[in-house]
Simulated assay, not measured.
Amino acid sequence: MTATSWAPGVTIRRREVLHGELWMDHPVSVVADDGEVFAVLLEPGSEFTFHDHPFGPHPWGAHAAWGGRQVLQIHRVGELYSVWKFFDEGGEFLHWYVNFESAVVRDLAGFDTNDYGLDLLVHPDGHREWKDVEDLHWQRAEGRITVETVSAVLEAASGVIDLLDADDLWWARFDDFAPTRVGQV
């Protein structure tokens, strides 16, 4: 393990950082980490901490905590996206979700990223559904991201489609993971 790898079961912080300033953070639990790919579990009730920021309140500022379902968030060093695996209340797989975001920056306490808004929902039957496409334009217009970032995100999105079409999924090692079966990865 590298100095910034974490042991399974450790709680770390997922931090959203915009233009070098912390905007929001919350705890997640490490499921697996090989130094290149790491996965964390976001649990319902994970409390959000919001920080004053020049861009004003964080978009999730009205929420005190994650109110959604359990989510396995899988990150690979250098990628402009993470792959999220959503589960129902019983821990059964619902769908995959590709979250386009800045490449993670890791340290001993957790990791930094920044959500770009664009998302791709991948249903169990393989059907794909783009979400929040307009967020790229809105974030550029607001000064949160640059035109270059928009281009990089669209290139990353094209790469994800290529991976899906080729069934060459670097996150496939988590296909059988379920929160009720921790330790299977």
Rank of each mutant, 00 (worst) to 15 (best):
T2R: 15
A3E: 14
T4P: 00
T4V: 13
S5G: 14
A7I: 12
A7D: 13
G9Q: 06
G9D: 08
G9A: 08
T11S: 10
R13C: 00
R13K: 09
R14M: 11
R14H: 12
R15Y: 03
E16C: 07
E16G: 02
G20Q: 07
W23S: 07
S29A: 04
S29C: 02
S29G: 02
V31Q: 05
V31I: 15
A32K: 01
D33F: 04
D34N: 13
D34Y: 04
G35S: 08
E36S: 12
E36H: 13
L41Q: 13
P44L: 03
S46M: 07
S46L: 08
E47K: 13
E47S: 13
T49D: 05
H53Q: 04
H53W: 04
F55I: 00
P57F: 02
P57G: 03
H58C: 05
P59S: 06
G61D: 05
A62W: 06
A62H: 11
A62P: 02
A62V: 09
H63L: 15
W66L: 05
W66G: 06
G67F: 02
G68N: 07
G68V: 07
G68F: 08
R69N: 13
Q70A: 04
V71E: 01
L72I: 08
Q73L: 11
H75W: 03
L80Q: 13
V83K: 05
W84R: 04
K85L: 06
F87D: 10
E89A: 14
G90S: 15
G91L: 12
F93V: 05
F93K: 09
F93N: 09
H95E: 09
W96N: 04
Y97T: 05
V98C: 01
A103S: 15
A103W: 07
L108S: 13
L108M: 05
A109D: 09
F111G: 02
D112K: 02
T113G: 02
N114Y: 15
D115K: 07
D115Y: 06
L121G: 00
V122R: 10
P124L: 08
D125P: 06
D125R: 04
G126C: 12
H127I: 08
R128F: 02
R128K: 08
E129W: 11
W130E: 08
K131W: 14
K131Q: 15
V133C: 11
V133L: 14
D135N: 04
L136H: 09
L136G: 09
W138S: 06
W138A: 12
Q139S: 12
Q139Y: 15
A141C: 08
G143L: 04
V147L: 04
T149Q: 14
V150Q: 14
S151R: 11
S151Y: 01
A152N: 03
A152V: 03
A152S: 11
L154H: 06
E155I: 00
A156D: 12
A156E: 15
A157W: 03
S158Y: 03
S158V: 01
V160M: 08
V160T: 07
V160Q: 05
D162K: 06
D165A: 01
D165F: 00
A166F: 03
D168F: 12
D168W: 11
D168K: 15
L169V: 10
F174S: 00
D175M: 00
D176C: 02
A178E: 12
A178N: 05
T180F: 01
V182W: 08
Q184I: 01
V185N: 02
